[in-house]
Design a protein around this nucleic acid. Structure first.
Length: 425
RNA sequence: GGAGGAGUGGCAGAGCUGGUUUAAUGCACCGGUCUUGAAAACCGGCGUACGAGAAAUCGUACCGGGGGUUCGAAUCCCUCCUCCUCCGCCA
């Protein structure tokens, strides 16, 4: 979330930025509410602090009086302090209530978009930052979409997933399962070569963790919730991995911190059925290798760029046609300041599929999770970034479709070391 | 799951028969003196957040989380969480 001090000092900038996100007048009004609440908070705190100081002082005196045997005087003073206590109790209530309201308001304010974020409302307004400049693959007219290929070569089975769990939980088998494992190892090795430390995090997280990265409050609907234990299944490894550094003050010299993790990801994706979500296009459980970086504010955009290049290099090795989108204000995630989406071309479906999202959250997450660093004498919030490198399900869809031949499905050269086969037959 | 023990500042570790403890002390860390340089020694500094103030500085809160008793709580009570030991179960 944004810092109140930032909102106070940059009110107009914040308002302009939020307009870029296409927020309505009501949502913009929250900025003034926040400032008003903060004014109240300060006023009440000043009064309360004075009262408590007085109480502390008198209590000490009472102690002294008892020690020197002046019980009579001490008892009169006790009554006085008791009175003071009643007043301060009321004030404390008020203070807590204001702070609760303030926090609740702050939670509704999304991140300020970076100046380079284009105006726009929907995904149609996203800017193509880097287009695919070669001809797109053209398949024979009898080319199959990946869900048909899956049946033909026995690679994954959606009906079995539905039988075991429900729709959107694919079951991979045979070469399909091997391909999945190969991709995970390939992605992890690429991250390792780029200097990321590998993490295997818990897949269930508590409320504090989900709140720190921005999944809670308000986005409960996205996550599966194990109610009995009040734990959430992670929608991305970003959540547990970034939270490693929750409530920590690190040194400036620790930057950059680079972490990677493979995890399954669970997303409820309520209410989306139809042709455009067939096969692996949109599922409730998918595998993903995530990269996370913590960086000094002065260098986070260089880091974002580096992460974009990392994802790009992987897609090139997989020989997949891809393009990079700069998300517009309306499509930008709640917590992000700047996001680049990667899409690969899936040749049988003849459409672009989102396979990665690389974002700089600046201090939005670090403020929530109190992730700071020492910069000389001052303590400052760090910048957090993350990106998918990469999400598997749709990569698999594109690989299968684009590489189908009459003899079988070709495996890209870079992956053959991992699959140990060069063709799915 | 059963029984017992424990959670204190970056770490170690006192305090826990409630009131000069504003959390002792040591280590680590930072600055200084000394030294050709370093080490050692010595001196000083050394948490976070918020508030008041031009500033110096002062104040408030925080001893696992939450609540309570009291004029006053690290210290007493309740509750939750976590860790350790033993027993049981188990990949």
């Amino acid at each position: 979330m944004l810092e109140v001090s930032f909102i106070r000092n940059n009110k107009n900038k914040v308002l302009e930025a939020l307009e870029k996100r296409r927020l309505g007048k009501e949502e913009l009004a929250v900025i003034d509410q926040v400032i008003a609440l903060d004014d109240q908070r300060k006023q009440v705190q000043t009064q309360l602090d004075e009262m408590l100081a007085e109480r502390n002082k008198l209590s000490k005196e009472i102690g002294q009086l008892f020690k020197s045997g002046k019980a009579q005087e001490a008892n009169t003073m006790k009554a006085k302090v008791a009175e003071l206590k009643d007043k301060s109790a009321g004030l404390e209530e008020e203070f807590k209530s204001i702070k609760t309201q303030l926090t609740a308001s702050l939670y509704t304010i999304p991140n300020v978009p970076h100046s380079s974020v284009p105006a726009g409302s929907t995904d149609e307004d996203n800017e193509i930052a880097q287009d695919w400049d070669q001809p797109l693959p053209e398949l024979d007219h009898d080319a199959l979409p990946h869900w048909e290929l899956a049946k033909k070569y026995n690679l994954f089975n959606l009906e079995l997933g539905t039988k075991i769990t429900g729709s959107g939980f694919p079951l991979y088998r045979g070469s399909g399962a091997k391909l999945q494992r190969a991709l995970i190892n390939f992605f992890l090795d690429e991250a390792h070569k780029a200097g990321y430390e590998e993490i295997i995090p818990p897949l269930l997280v508590n409320e504090d963790t989900a709140r720190a990265t921005g999944q809670l409050p308000d986005k409960e609907g996205q996550m599966y919730h194990a109610e009995k234990d009040d734990l959430y299944l992670i929608p991305t490894a970003e959540v547990p991995v970034t939270n490693i550094y929750r409530d920590l003050i690190i040194s400036k010299d620790d930057f950059p911190i680079k972490l990677t993790a493979y995890t399954p990801c669970f997303r409820r994706e309520a209410g989306s059925y139809g042709a455009h979500v067939r096969g692996l296009n949109r599922v409730h459980q998918f595998d993903k290798v995530e990269i996370v970086q913590l960086q000094h504010p002065d260098h986070s955009y260089d880091t974002l760029n580096e992460m974009v290049k990392h994802v790009e290099a992987i897609l090139q090795k997989l020989e997949l046609p891809y393009r990079i989108l700069r998300l517009c204000g309306g499509d930008l995630g709640f917590t992000s300041a700047l996001t680049f989406d990667f899409e690969v071309y899936s040749a049988a479906q003849k459409r672009w599929l989102e396979v990665s999202s690389v974002s700089n959250f600046e201090t939005f997450q670090s403020n929530r999770m109190k992730l700071r660093f020492k910069d000389g004498k001052s303590t400052r919030l760090a910048h957090t970034l993350n990106g998918s490198a990469l999400a598997l399900a749709r990569i698999v869809a594109a690989l299968l479709e684009n590489n189908q031949t009459s003899e079988g499905i070709k495996i890209p050269a870079a992956l053959q070391d991992y699959t140990r086969f060069d063709m799915i037959k």
